[in-house]
Design a protein around this nucleic acid. Structure first.
Lengths: 151, 151
DNA sequence: ATAAACTCATTGCAAATGCAATGATTTTCT
DNA sequence: AGAAAATCATTGCATTTGCAATGAGTTTAT
């Protein structure tokens, strides 16, 4: 009944596929909550995180760091600015760069968002038990592999 | 300089974030190639995979299995049908269901796509070395954790 | 010093997406 | 049996996205 001409392929073991599905489920977990309770979308959350815990990142820094489309970052930042959660200023060292900073209300909001993420993180670590370290090693291996971009 | 009011949070170690970034990079690797060389988008590729290696899946089966939005599956299937790569038929057992099947050209095309995925998979496994097993265990743990949906 | 090449952020526009609503079928309950 | 609730696929519509183009600023090379 399977198609005779297809190569053998364990499609349930295909790693990019497994990781994509898993990551989507994990993210959606918080995404719904963030959006319904705080009106924050996923890209906005990621930008907030970078601004709050990065070192005065520019749009470009965020794009690189989290591999989020340049325009996605730009638009998320615009929305966050419109909501009064971040402010933009031009880097005096290089006037092409737009540096992002949390406003007080932005820091306040992020302060409420973080604990939810920490709870999820704790749940995941508990589920992983002593496999957590191995997972982190594997993630690092794959990340550096894919960044060396030799596909 | 960090914002005093923010809780401590290792945002580079945050697992949903790491996995999302990694998965996106891994998928984009092939996505570009599939789109530029074969005109196949990511959702279309995922549907093709399910149709080719699943057991006569319906739209709903695919939605469940790969957690791909119902409408996304439906539209991807419509596009694939328009390209002559799959065919739809109504399940006689339950006439609400639309069962998808590869056409001959669809099977041919998928037969060309698979080897590229296999190459990537092999690269990843090589990069992982003997950490591969641990990664798979971790993925399974997290997947069942998140499917039990007790967040 | 000036022009060409490069980098950065934003924006326009077509395509893709998410979500609620629809229509068709099946299951459940009385 | 018959009505109500549930399940499935599709579609309409507003929003989001991706990608190329633009404009501003900087670096490199002549």
């Amino acid at each position: 009944m399977p198609y005779e001409t297809l190569p053998d392929f364990d499609f349930n073991g295909y790693l990019p596929y497994r990781l994509t599905v898993l990551a989507a489920k994990l993210s959606d977990q918080l995404a719904k909550q963030y959006k319904s309770e705080y009106g924050i979308s996923m890209p906005e959350w990621r930008v907030l995180l970078n601004v709050g815990y990065g070192e005065h990142p520019s749009v470009r820094d965020i794009e690189r760091h989290v591999s989020l489309e340049k325009s996605k970052v730009s638009r998320a930042a615009a929305r966050l600015e419109a909501k009064g959660l971040i402010s933009k200023c031009i880097d005096p060292k290089d006037r092409r760069l737009v540096i992002l900073e949390l406003t007080e209300t932005g820091a306040e909001l992020l302060g409420k968002l973080i604990p939810l993420a920490q709870t999820l993180q704790a749940d995941l670590e508990k589920a992983l038990g002593d496999h957590e370290g191995a997972l982190r090693v594997a993630i690092d291996l794959l990340s550096t592999k894919v960044e060396s971009g030799n596909a």
